[in-house]
Every structure is written in structure tokens, then in C-alpha cells.
Amino acid sequence: MFKKTCLALALVGAAAAAHAGPTLINEGFDDVASLAAKGWKIENHGSPAGAIEPWYQGNVSTGFTDLHGDPTAYVAAQYGAVAAGGILSSWLISPVFSTAENLEVSFWARGDGTPGYIDQLAYGLLDVSGAFTSFIPQAAITVVGEWTRYSFQLAGQGAGSSARFAIQYFGNGDEANVVGVDDVAINVPEPSTWALAGVSLLGLVAARRRRTQA
């Protein structure tokens, strides 16, 4: 049922957008230890599990600072969440938020840029229980060695509807290195921002139809 009702536009980009409505979630990860008290979940579904927490407070050993220059104010994940030969599945799950209105969900992510490693994130929505089996992915990305903003627009689902946002660090642990995530935000966008997103969607649909008819 959740998959049938959550309809989203995947609009990935690096440019920040203006917001007229309220901010539902604004997390800068200054204190990862406090996330659980604020309704966040951190889970490791990788196998076999390793010695490192699936998501943890950023630190100088990663080789980069947070988006604003602080050496630790971000949340990080790395290959050590699984043992050698393991498959990563480290989940960072937001508190429950209302999906009654149109929303923009955004976050910043980066890797350390070491050649030879592939660090991958998938992001999207979960139901209110936070069960990873309910995951509706919006996109999967390979993060690079600089902070980059990713976002998508979520169509309002009507009164009483709600969901969670999730980021999964996934892939072969032996081929992965480390990622950072910062400034997760869920906002009600200004009407002009949403209208532009709708025009973009119609353009994509029209282009697909032209290719089909050719």
C-alpha cells in the first residue's frame, strides 16, 4: 500500500532551492549520539557484520571536514561495517514526517576521492515503521571527493499521510572506502519551485513518448 501511494519526482542536483513553507527536518549531525532521541534510526543489515558502527560521528581520520568546515559535524559510514568479503547495507533513517503537502527532500554527501574505491548510496522513502523492506528508492549514486547536494520533490499524499527518509550505504565492502552525509533537510517548497518541477516532469514524459513513436 505504501508503494502505491508515495509518488515522487527524482530531481538530483547541486543547486540549493529557496523554501517558503516550514522546515520539517533539518539535521546537521553535530551530535550523532543524540540522533536516536530525536527519532532517527541507524541500522546495519550488511553481512557479515564488522567491527565498525554502520553510521558514526565524522572524524579527522576520514581525511575531510564537514560541509561547513567543522572536522566532525557530519555522519560517516565505511567499509568496516562488514567483515572482509562482506556486503554493505548501512541504513540512516530519519524521524517520521508528514507527507500531506508537497515536499523537497535534500542532503549533501561526499567520499574521500581515493582512486580504486566505489562508495555508493541509495536514498528514498520508508513507511512509518522504518522497515527497510518498505524502501522506495529515488536514486542510487556513486559519491565523489567533494560535497554535492542531492534532492528530490515528493508530491503531497494528503491529510494524515507520513513517511521516513532513508539513506543506504551499499555495495561490496572490499571495494568501498568511506562516505560522509551532512545537512539532511525536508522542507515545504515555495509554489514556484514546485511548478518548475512539474514542468520538468511533463517534458520528460513528452520526450519518452516521442522516442516510443519514432
Rank of each mutant, 00 (worst) to 15 (best):
Met1His: 09
Lys3Trp: 03
Lys4Gln: 11
Thr5Leu: 02
Leu7Trp: 12
Ala8Ser: 12
Ala15Asn: 10
Ala16Arg: 13
Ala17Ser: 08
Gly21Arg: 07
Gly21Cys: 04
Thr23Leu: 07
Leu24Gly: 12
Asn26Ile: 01
Asp30Cys: 03
Ala33Pro: 05
Ala33Asp: 13
Trp40Lys: 10
Ile42Ser: 07
Asn44Met: 03
Ser47Phe: 01
Pro48Thr: 13
Ala49Met: 01
Ala49Ile: 09
Ala51Phe: 07
Ile52Asn: 08
Pro54Tyr: 01
Trp55Asp: 09
Asn59Asp: 15
Val60Arg: 13
Val60Phe: 08
Val60Glu: 15
Ser61Phe: 06
Gly63Arg: 09
Asp66Trp: 00
Leu67Ser: 06
Tyr74His: 06
Gln78Met: 12
Val82Asp: 00
Ala84Gln: 12
Gly85His: 11
Gly86Asp: 08
Gly86Trp: 04
Leu88Ile: 13
Ser89Leu: 07
Ile93Val: 15
Ser94Met: 06
Val96Pro: 00
Glu101His: 13
Ser106Leu: 07
Ala109Arg: 07
Arg110Ile: 08
Gly111Tyr: 01
Gly113Glu: 10
Thr114Met: 05
Gly116Thr: 14
Asp119Arg: 05
Leu121Tyr: 05
Tyr123Ser: 07
Gly124Cys: 09
Asp127Thr: 02
Ala131Glu: 13
Ser134Gly: 10
Ser134Tyr: 02
Ile136Asp: 00
Pro137Gln: 15
Pro137Val: 15
Pro137Gly: 15
Ala139Met: 03
Thr142Met: 01
Val144Arg: 05
Glu146Asp: 04
Glu146Arg: 14
Arg149Glu: 06
Tyr150Trp: 08
Tyr150Val: 00
Ser151Arg: 12
Gly156Met: 08
Gln157Val: 11
Gln157Phe: 04
Gly158Ala: 11
Ala159Lys: 14
Arg164Pro: 07
Arg164Gly: 11
Phe165Met: 10
Ala166Trp: 03
Gln168Met: 10
Gln168Val: 14
Phe170Arg: 09
Asn172Asp: 13
Gly173Ala: 03
Asp174Glu: 08
Ala176Leu: 07
Gly180Tyr: 03
Asp182His: 05
Asp183Ser: 14
Asp183Lys: 13
Ala185His: 06
Ile186Asn: 02
Ile186Gly: 03
Ile186Lys: 05
Ile186Ser: 03
Ile186Val: 15
Glu190His: 05
Glu190Leu: 11
Ser192Ala: 14
Leu196Trp: 01
Val199Cys: 02
Val199Pro: 00
Val199Met: 05
Ala207Asn: 03
Arg210His: 04
Arg211Tyr: 06
